[in-house]
Nucleic acid binder design. Structure first.
Length: 288
DNA sequence: GTCCGGTTTA
DNA sequence: TAAACAGGAC
């Protein structure tokens, strides 16, 4: 006779390592139970267009759902498919990106669109491995696309998923590494419907933000970021906002409007030039 | 480990 | 004010 099966965590059995099928079932039913009553209705859910999914996933990197929701549909209508985005001027793409932050994503999205049209005949690849070869697509984004656009039973972690598993399975632990969490994600994955399963996990993770301390603070990967006011990020954002609203500007003109020290402006313009945001021609700066 | 946006919420 | 955000690149 088989040994007594063991639970996933203290909630399902003390000091146990391997999950029982019953424990897995119980966890899945809790997550799906919450999902039935509290699912978020979002414009990039329950759709099949891989381009739309890609745009949403790039936008959602480190960016709140509500903010993406306000930009996503106009972006899609402005650039309806890979070839439209690939052929659009960067200036127009950056204009539609205004307010989302991390403007490099606008560049990489355009680059991805170009590569998809040129190397893949306009079809976004479906494997995590290939998706990860694109700029701006790492493991999390590649996996999300595979799950949401192609119903692939991939195992991955992002901030909402991480919060769920830390809260439920690592209740009294600190410095939890993602490599410790991933086996739990794998064991509990609903392989019959990974797309809905990950929707449900994420919605549950959003709920866990309210009412108590963020469980993700017990993640080994948690770190708070440097202040925004006075940062290069702020300067870069202001420069790009100006340049998307003008045909071209001199360094002097930008300096007048920003009122920062000249060295800081020079460094940022050089950096933006290097990253492909702006071009310099006859001492005038324009969007590249 | 650090940098990269900009907004909302507590 | 701080904190957090469907991360990725270097």
């Amino acid at each position: 006779m088989r040994k007594r099966s063991r639970g996933l965590t203290s909630e399902y059995g003390r000091r146990e390592k391997r999950p029982t099928t019953a424990a897995i079932k119980k966890f899945q039913e809790m997550i799906y139970g919450y999902y039935r009553n509290h699912k978020r209705i979002l414009p990039w859910r329950n759709i099949q267009n891989p381009y739309h999914i890609l745009v949403s996933e790039i936008m959602l990197q480190q960016t709140q759902v509500q903010r993406v929701a306000g930009k996503y549909e106009q972006f899609i209508s402005k650039f309806p498919d890979f070839s439209a985005l690939a052929g659009a001027p960067l200036k127009m793409v950056l204009k539609e990106w205004q307010g989302l932050g991390y403007n490099r994503r606008a560049i990489v999205l355009k680059q991805i669109a170009r590569e998809v049209t040129e190397r893949f005949g306009g079809d976004l690849p479906s494997s995590v491995e290939t998706l990860e070869t694109f700029p701006g697509i790492g493991r999390a984004t590649a996996s999300a696309i595979a799950a949401f656009a192609f119903q692939k039973p991939v195992v991955f972690i992002e901030t909402n998923i991480r919060r769920v598993f830390i809260h439920v399975f690592f209740h009294d632990k600190i410095d939890i590494k993602d490599t410790e969490i991933l086996p739990f994600i794998e064991k509990t994955l609903d392989t019959s419907n990974p797309r809905d399963w990950y929707y449900a996990l994420m919605d549950y993770g959003v709920m866990l933000k309210k009412g108590h301390e963020n469980p993700n603070r017990r993640s080994a990967h948690y770190q708070k970021q440097s202040p925004f006011p006075g940062s290069n990020r702020q300067v870069r954002g202001m420069i790009l906002k100006m340049l998307t609203n003008e045909s071209s500007l001199s360094e002097q003109k930008i300096l007048q409007k920003l009122a920062i020290c000249p060295e800081k402006l020079r460094d940022n313009l050089l950096q933006l030039e290097k990253e492909g945001f702006v071009k310099r021609k006859w001492r005038q700066f324009t969007i590249a």
